[in-house]
Design a protein around this nucleic acid. Structure first.
Lengths: 238, 238
DNA sequence: ACCCCTTTGTCTGATACCGTACCGAGTGGG
DNA sequence: CCCACTCGGTACGGTATCAGACAAAGGGGT
């Protein structure tokens, strides 16, 4: 495979590795397309590959025995999967799949694991990411418990916006309803609220951020904490 | 300090360390009382000590900027704090405090950190615990999103019961309302439901588990997944 | 015994969200 | 160009939970 220059990489974790760590990893990274719906990891199965997205957004979803589900976190070029590699856990009980199409790199989990065992700095870096991710999950939990649907929707749009290049985010109400663990019609009405306040445009299969500062203000209490924690641990990712 | 024999220890993580790892840690462990309300870690502050409870229950709570709060996880003799030590993160944005009085061991975080740097097995062990904890958080998130208050209450009572010796759990409705992120009167009525079904007794400042199997059945979809994940990673803890 | 304070029980009205159903509008394939 | 299918909008009744207030009950201290 062709050489990968660290300065050309967009994934924040890969950018933050030391040059020596990077070249050790880079030799095994393979560029991959990440189409919408692509499964990065399946529940209770050891993933064959670890992924570092360059673009696009992936979603981590927990499912209950009776089939209820809720999103517990998202990541794009700020993250990687699976966290279980970093934590010596083998697998995890989540579905992780692409929600907004993109691309990135993959590496065999076995290989990554052995690199981590020999490279404490790298392991610490990914450890900090795991913390950022679980803090994100914690605030999702809080949000699910105490915030209204439109605020949670605003939070969610902001988190996606952080991880995309333009202002356009391509997804359906159906999809959003799964992410927020609400009914599909509730998404429709919540989107109308945001649209009515001129914070976004909403089209078929597409949400366009129109006034980001106002959107942040609207999300208010729901957005920000986990982003600050990421920044503290790993700096900016866009 | 007196010698601590590993076989006499009740904390599951300490029990699972290799004998050599254990003796390295044990030399620095100091027994401590953990009274109700004791702060194991404060938000955004580097904890001075790591704690390994032997008895009692601690609660991890996330707080939003506007002061809303919700519990994202609990642990007792199954766990330790802070996870941030394991993940090279320094601090985390949560309040962690004793909810049911108990006792345990503490060790300086600095010391634990340096032990972890030299002992990969120990680091992996605690890594697996961190995964178990964040899975617990994820299912809390799911539960907050989709389950009714009485089911969530049942789940919560079961999780506490797992971590205590008898069938008595000592806490007030006020406390429970914080944990479940609901109004206090909602707790009262939810407890009445469980009591009416003869699953628990409820007294002033005290909940007594009366029929655990039936309680599990009642909690149904809300309870079990994160416990299975803990078991897979770290075995039984009671 | 009394008082005070904590804890628990209950009420009333309001509302956010649900379950379900149905229909219109956009879109892509033959 | 039309059909089939996906996606989005809307409506209706029902209910879980909220917000806030107040009253009763338990328990400890002097």
């Amino acid at each position: 495979m062709a050489d990968i220059r660290q300065t050309a990489v967009r994934n924040n974790l890969l950018r933050l590795t030391s040059p020596t760590s990077f070249s050790a990893i880079a030799a095994h990274l393979k560029p991959v397309d990440l189409p919408r719906g692509f499964e990065l990891s399946e529940p209770h199965e050891a993933a064959e590959y670890a992924y570092f997205p360059e673009t696009g957004i992936a979603s981590i979803v927990a499912r209950s025995p009776q089939g209820q589900h809720a999103e517990i976190g998202i990541f794009g070029r700020d993250g990687m999967t699976p966290a279980a590699v970093v934590l010596d856990a083998g697998s995890d009980p989540f579905s992780i799949f692409m929600q907004v199409q993109g691309d990135g790199f993959r590496i065999s989990t076995e290989l990554l694991k052995s690199l981590l065992d020999r490279d404490a700095d790298l392991k610490n870096l990914l450890g900090r990411y795991v913390q950022a991710l679980s803090v994100q999950g914690a605030f999702t939990s809080l949000s699910n418990a105490v915030h209204h649907i439109d605020e949670r929707l605003a939070r969610w749009i902001l988190m996606c916006h952080d991880r995309t290049d333009g202002d356009e985010i391509s997804l359906t109400h159906e999809f959003l309803s799964i992410m927020l663990a609400v009914r599909r019609p509730s998404v429709t009405t919540a989107l109308h609220v945001l649209e009515g306040r001129k914070l976004i445009y909403s089209e078929r299969g597409m949400i366009i951020v129109r006034d980001r500062p106002a959107l942040e203000q609207f999300a208010a209490d729901a957005y920000g904490e986990s982003e600050r924690e990421y920044f503290r641990l790993l700096g900016p990712y866009n």
